[in-house]
Design a protein around this nucleic acid. Structure first.
Length: 272
DNA sequence: CTGTAATCCTGCGAGC
DNA sequence: TGCTCGCAGGATTACA
């Protein structure tokens, strides 16, 4: 679920409470996550101090004095720091004891999320480099133009491809396409220079705005302190099937593209 | 090189 | 009320 704005909000809200703390122990849940290395690495992080907390694409990077943790929230993951009494919480897979009655908890209902350990930050970055393209902010215009002209896929599929641009997911792809007035099924190599530029700027604008609203909470998403986001109240396309377009009042339509629902205005977003 | 579908999971709302 | 179906913010893999 969480896309770049949600992960950025989690990282920002966790950073002050995590940085400088030492992991005293790790408790592991019974159920398996998709990356089955939990339990193998838990001992490696005990007594490690947390040096920094960062984000790349939709990934959370927790750098330790030695080694680093890489987390992904999948569709329903929550990473929170809590203090005081220890409530029972279903779907908890990891609890990091941070001392002084503080704990970091990783919950994930659907278990699409993951938590991995790397012996060095360098190895972690090699792993991410193999999967991720550049961040959407300050994207090189010529890189973007080349990426679009060199592909014949629908633009929606390209926006979701993390190796082209890191961090965009289904919600923000739809919102960006709406803002740029580009049809989700439009083939990338057929987009005009104007459309290409508009989309590059729209992605940046939509993501920035969503971060300011602390992300979108549709169902599960919470930030590092357990609070919901507010951007779901500002969706113009996503999840608005049948509702009137805020620009032209024509009903928003939904199509299935690249295996995902795409919401768009048939009047404002044309393929031609 | 594309594109699509299936896979990993749980939970919820719609419709019968 | 209770059942089944389809759908959900993601990433990876297999296959046409």
């Amino acid at each position: 679920m969480p896309e770049l704005p949600e992960v950025e909000t989690v990282v920002r809200s966790l950073r002050p409470g995590l940085t400088g703390r030492t992991i005293l122990g790790v408790r592991v849940g019974r159920k398996k996550l998709r990356v089955p290395w939990i339990g193998v690495w838990t001992r490696a992080v005990v007594n490690q101090r947390i040096a920094s907390v960062n984000r790349r694409g939709k990934w959370i990077i927790i750098e330790l004095d030695t080694g680093a943790l890489l987390g992904h929230l999948g569709m329903t993951g929550q990473l929170t720091v809590e203090a005081g009494d220890n409530k029972r919480c279903p779907h908890t897979h990891l609890i990091f004891d941070l001392g002084d009655e503080h704990r970091m908890r990783f919950r994930d209902e659907r278990r699409f999320g993951s938590f991995q350990h790397f012996p060095t930050l360098k190895e972690l970055n090699v792993y991410l480099d193999a999967r991720l393209g550049p961040e959407p902010f300050g994207l090189d215009p010529s890189y973007w133009r080349a990426a679009l002209s060199g592909s014949k896929r629908p633009i929606k599929a390209l926006l979701l491809d993390q190796s082209v641009i890191a961090g965009v997911g289904n919600i923000y792809a739809d919102e960006s396409l709406y803002a740029a007035r580009v049809h989700p099924a439009a083939l990338t190599h057929r987009l005009t220079a104007t459309q290409s530029t508009a989309l590059r700027k729209s992605v940046e604008k939509v993501l920035t705005h969503a971060i300011e609203r602390r992300g979108s909470s549709i169902r599960n998403y919470l930030d590092g302190t357990g609070e919901r986001g507010g951007y779901q109240n500002e969706f113009k396309a996503y999840g608005r099937t049948g509702e009137p377009c805020r620009r032209c009042r024509v009903a928003i339509e939904r199509v299935r593209l690249a295996g995902r629902s795409s919401h768009y205005c048939p009047q404002c977003q044309r393929t031609d």
